[in-house]
Structures are given as C-alpha cells and as structure tokens.
Nucleic acid binder design. Structure first.
Lengths: 255, 255
DNA sequence: CATACCTATGTTATTATATAACATTTCCAT
DNA sequence: ATGGAAATGTTATATAATAACATAGGTATG
C-alpha cells in the first residue's frame, strides 16, 4: 500500500496534477475508491492537495504561490496580471545568459523570473519570491540582498541591502516602477526601496524598466530615476506621443 | 463585480478556506453560478485554488509548503518531524519578547518560527522559509541575511552574510546542528554555513542549540562550536550519561 | 434615443464526482 | 486455526461542476 501511495505521490510531483481517471488507468489492480483514499491520505500528510477530479502537487504550487503572496499591494493590482505577463515576455529575451543581472522585487519581476528558468545567470535580487523562483533554475546562482523584510511585498531593503549591493557588479538591472510621469520620472513609494533602486541603477551597466501602462501619468513620493538613466523601457502597449518624444530625447528605447 | 471578487478573495485569505455554500449565504444577491465563476477567475489569477465544494487560500498553503520544500535533505529527514516539533516546543519559551534573536535555517528552526507567531521580536535569520514564517508575526521585525541562496535548504550564506551579521547585536541565537559528538562538538557540512554559525555564536549573548537525538554520536566536517560555547541544548529526549557529564563540565544546560 | 453589442449574471438539465455505509478480503499475531 | 485489525471493494446516494442557453444591464455609436 505504501508503495502505491509513494508512486502516486511521485507521479503527482512529476506531473504536477493527476486525475483520478489517470490513476485508475495506471493502477488497474485497485478500485477508484482506494485511490481516493490514497489521495485523502496524502492530503492529510500535506503532500498534495485534492482538487475536483484529482489532485495537485503542493511543491509545484509553491512556485506559483509566492508570486502572489504580496499582500495588499498585489490585491490592488490583481487586475493587471495580463499586462504583467505581456511585459515579462517582452523583457525576458533581454536577459543575456552568462551575465550578472539584478532583478527587482515585485509581481511583474516575478513574472520575468518565471521566464528565466534556463540559462546560466548570476542573479541578484531583493525579492524573496524572485529568489525562490530563480532557484528553480539549476544553472543560475542566486544572490539575495540582505536587510529588513517587508511583509507586504516580500521585498528586502534597508541599510544592509545597500551595503550588500556595494561590492557586486551588475551587467543588467531589471527594475520595476510604481509610477511614471514626465515631470517626476520613475517613482515609487518607499524610502528604503528608493535608495536601493538608485544604488542598483548607478552600478548597472544597463538599466531596463518594466512597467504596465496603467502607471503612466501618475506619481509617487520618490523619484529613483529619469528616462535619461534608463536604456530600455518595457511597456505592455504603445506609448503615447508625448512619452515617445521624451524617450527619444533621453535616449531611452521603448519596446 | 470586482468588488465582490475582491471581497471573496479577502475572505479566503482570512479564513483560509470557504465553501460555495458559505459564499452563497454571504452574497445573497448573486447566484451560485456567479460565485463559481468568481472562484474560476481567482483561480486563473493564481490567487486561490479551487477544491471540491469551495476554495482554499494559496498563501496559507505557502506556509505548510515551505517547510517541506527543503529538497532532498528534508525528504530524508521527514521521519523525524515529531521530534523536531517536540524540540521546537521546548525551545520556544526561551525566546524572550523584546529581544533580538537569531534563528538559524533548517526545518527544526522552521518549527520554532511557527511557535513565535506573537510577541515583539526582532528576528534575524539566514533561512528564507524562517523569514517568511516569521513575517506572519505582525509585531516582529524580520531581518534576512544577504548572500547566496542554497536551493536545497533555502538557506542564505556566503561572504555577504558574514558582513551582514557584523553590525547586528544578537541577544539569543537559536542554532541548528547537523551532528554532535563528544570528540568533535557540534558540526555541520557546509563551509559557508559553518563560518556564519561561528560568527553568530561569537556575537550572541546566549546560544541555544536545537538538535534531535538521532544526530548524537555522529559528526560532519566542520565544528562550529563546542559545549562550552553553548548555554542551552534542547533535545527531544533525555541525554545519556556521557553527554550529561560533558555538559555539566562545560556549563551547558540540557533541556 | 434607438440599435446593436458586449459583459455579467441567471436558469436549468445533465454529467461527473465524492461520500457514506456496509461487505469483503488479506494479513498478522497469538 | 482464529480473532481482529487494516486495507480494499461495492453500491446507492448525495453533492457539486459543467454546459448550454436565456436574460438583463450598461454603453458606445449612428
């Protein structure tokens, strides 16, 4: 019995999800009731979670979970998940293998990390969820910035984080922006994160900002950079003329 | 519509799990089909997971998941979960509120963190899962050590981690030991983690080691401390006479 | 302001799935 | 051998999910 349960568990680990019917086909010797009971058992052991018609792997879930644990912030932003995916897809090819890349914290960056599951990167990040996601990529080394953990967005910042960045070389920095306006540039709302972003951008050879278009025209307290500091801005849609012009003047490419 | 969906999501976040029937009672204005569609939507957004008859919070799952994500090591060690819980229960009261405490990485420490959900602690840790767990305690500040992330045990270590510790005061250090023997003292198997442990113990006013009894009499490459450096050793069972004697000589209390 | 159109929602019938309760088998210890 | 516990099977029943179509409400457009 334990053998069968172990086999079922391993199958689920491997496939992420199985249906009772698949299990029936795979274990013709036992009844579906027994298989259900096996799933009950594994669920009680916190190894899987039962869903209608089958079961899912918990450890696979852990991946998709962390991108959304980001508390209040994420809750407000729930609507823009599509845009974020679109942006991340456009930005992912800009990460050249073999390079040292910084990945900012935030849900858009989490989407980016999910698209970097292969390739030899040296990643440094202040997003705990980004770090965990990138650790799925066996050929990447993941460096996590130290400092105080913000429980709302799973972001690490503070003085310790600044020191940490100091001695690390960054080829490409992927940054998230809370807002952008022509007057104030790229802004965000936390002092500690603002300091860290500034520091990273100063150190990075190339800076890429990812932002969804709903954030354009708004502004937050801290300006962490302006278009002239940015090499590429990744948006989910075409910029309007004013932004296009400003970007051209500042030498910022928009994709 | 978005309001309702947000309310449902928040309800699930709060309660961990809801049934369709509960939702029907809570939203008498809409049909159950609509509520099902809301759950479909939230599941698509990776905010919840649907189960038969209702839905579950993903972020609540993340708690139970992370303690088991610890790769091969954890899978081998899963058998001692009971002992770990027992140890953690004995150790938790030693964490005095208001103090600066270090919590080592590892699954025993994860169990400890789960028992510190209330109380005003200033926590510093090198375990990513410990940090996430402690961030559930709203009155704790959580400081995460920076450095390279070990994908197997979600532990952060390396030179960056050492620097980070340098400037932080630690009242009580809760340390995990891979092995203990009378000849070699407390040992573990990773150089980077060994350096970090040493540093932490040097800085800590009080050192408490948590270890399950299956690890006694074995030994690993790096000795990070000896009984005379330890104030309290927390075991799951009574020590044998040899250990008891050695502890007495070294001034190490065993509980 | 009427029209079409899209989105959200509701209704119902149908299908699929889970559960409970009881029956049977298997295996182990005595 | 035999009692009993654990595992598994069977069936009827209850429960939930889905599909397909129907309706309502809002809004952009001529």
């Amino acid at each position: 019995m334990q053998d069968r349960r172990k086999a079922i568990f391993e199958l689920i680990e491997q496939k992420d999800e199985v249906s009772i019917h698949e299990l029936e086909a795979l274990f013709p010797g036992v009844s579906s009731m027994t298989l259900r009971r096996d799933l009950d058992y594994l669920e009680n052991e916190h190894k899987i979670i039962k869903i209608k018609g089958g079961a899912k792997s918990l450890s696979h879930l852990s991946r998709s979970i962390l991108q959304d644990v980001e508390g209040d912030y994420a809750q407000r932003e729930i609507l823009n998940a599509d845009k974020k995916r679109k942006i991340a897809e456009k930005a992912a090819p800009l990460a050249e293998a073999g390079r040292s890349i910084f990945i900012d914290a935030g849900s858009t960056m989490m989407q980016l990390a999910r698209r970097l599951h292969s390739g030899r990167f040296s990643v440094i990040t202040n997003g705990v969820n980004v770090a965990l996601e990138m650790s799925q990529n066996k050929s990447a080394t993941v460096n996590l910035v130290g400092g105080e953990l913000n429980r709302n967005n799973l972001c690490v910042s503070g003085a310790g984080a600044l020191d940490h960045i100091q001695d690390i070389n960054i080829d490409i920095a992927f940054m998230a922006a809370s807002c952008f306006s022509l007057e104030n540039g790229f802004t965000n709302g936390s002092f500690d994160e603002y300091k860290l972003k500034q520091q990273v951008i100063k150190k990075a050879k190339k800076t890429i900002v990812l932002m969804d278009s709903t954030k354009i025209g708004k502004s937050m307290p801290y300006t962490f950079c302006r278009p002239e500091d940015v090499d590429v801005l990744v948006l989910d849609q075409e910029p309007d003329d004013a932004l296009r012009l400003a970007a051209k003047e500042a030498g910022m490419e928009i994709i």
